[in-house]
Design a protein around this nucleic acid. Structure first.
Lengths: 140, 140
DNA sequence: CCTACATCCTCTAGCGACTAGAGGTGCAAG
DNA sequence: CTTGCACCTCTAGTCGCTAGAGGATGTAGG
C-alpha cells in the first residue's frame, strides 16, 4: 500500500492542505498515522470523510452540525432523525436567506437604475443608502 | 444644544454602542468631541452617517466599500461612477449568491424528502453528503 | 450632600472557519 | 549529493463585530 500524503488527500478530497490539518486539530478528522519522518499517512476512509466535510461545508452546514452528522455516519444503526432535523433547519435558513437576498437585489437594482451617472449629489445609490425611508422593500 | 451620548446615537441610528466605538476605531466615523468627563458627544450628522453605514451593512456592503461610499458622500461634486460600480458589483454578487442558494435549496429538499425517517444507513441526507456524485445540481 | 444605579470609558480577548507566513525537516529525482 | 518541492509546527492575521473586566461619570431620588 502506498501511503497517502496530506497533499494527495487534499487533491482527492478537494480540501486544502492547511484546512485538512485544521480539521484534524479541531477533532473533526482522527489524527492519521505518521511516517518515520513524522509525516501524515492517510487512508481512503479519511478521504471520504474529508469529501463529506467539504460537501457539507459547501452546503453551508456549520462545523458543529457537521460534527453531529459525522457521528451519525459513524454509527449507521442510529435513527436518522437528527440528520433530518439538521438538514431541515439548514433548509429553512437557506429559504430565509434567499428571501432576504431577493429583497436586497430589488433594492440594489433600484439604486443602480436610478443612478444618472452624473455627480454624487444626484446619485440615487448614495441617496438611498443615506435614507432608509426610501427603501421600497421592507426587508431589513 | 443637548449633547448626544453614545447610547442615544446608538438608539437613533440602530447601530449598537460597542459597534459605534468600533467604527470610530477603524476610522469610519470621525472621533467626536468629548464632555468634561471624557464621554463622547455626537452631532446629528454623526447619526446620519451611522444610519448610512448600518443601511449599507444590511445591504451586505463590506466595510472597505462603505469607506469608499462615505468619501463619495463627503464630496458630492465627484462623479458617482465609483458608487455606481460598487453597487453594481454588489448586485452581481447578490445575484450569484441567490443562484447558488437556489441550487443548494433544491439539493437540501431532495435530501430531506428522501429521508425515510428510519435508520442512518438508509438516510439520504447522510448518503448525499457522503457522495457528491449524487447531487442533482452541479452548483459547487 | 449622599447614595444608588445606569451609562459611560478603555482594554483585551473571543467568535467561526479558516489563511498566511516563518523557520525548519523529509524525501525523491537527477 | 544536491536541488527543490512537500511536509512539519507554531503563531498571528483575516472580517466585523461581541463580551467581559475593571473602573469613571452622570443623574435622579432621598
Amino acid at each position: 500500500m502506498k501511503r497517502i500524503t496530506i497533499g494527495e488527500a487534499a487533491r482527492q478530497s478537494g480540501v486544502k492542505v492547511p484546512t485538512v490539518r485544521y480539521y484534524e486539530s479541531i477533532g473533526l478528522l482522527a489524527a492519521p498515522s505518521r511516517s518515520e519522518g513524522n509525516q501524515r499517512s492517510f487512508e481512503p476512509a479519511d478521504i471520504s470523510r474529508l469529501a463529506f466535510i467539504r460537501h457539507a461545508r459547501e452546503l453551508g452546514f456549520e462545523i458543529e452540525a457537521i460534527r453531529t452528522l459525522l457521528t451519525l455516519q459513524d454509527d449507521p444503526h442510529q435513527s436518522c432523525a437528527s440528520a433530518d432535523a439538521i438538514a431541515k433547519a439548514r433548509l429553512i435558513e437557506v429559504e430565509q436567506r434567499i428571501r432576504s437576498l431577493r429583497a436586497l437585489k430589488a433594492e440594489l437594482e433600484t439604486m443602480v437604475e436610478g443612478c444618472g451617472h452624473g455627480r454624487v449629489d444626484q446619485c440615487r445609490v448614495i441617496e438611498v443608502l443615506a435614507d432608509h425611508g426610501q427603501c421600497t422593500h421592507p426587508h431589513h
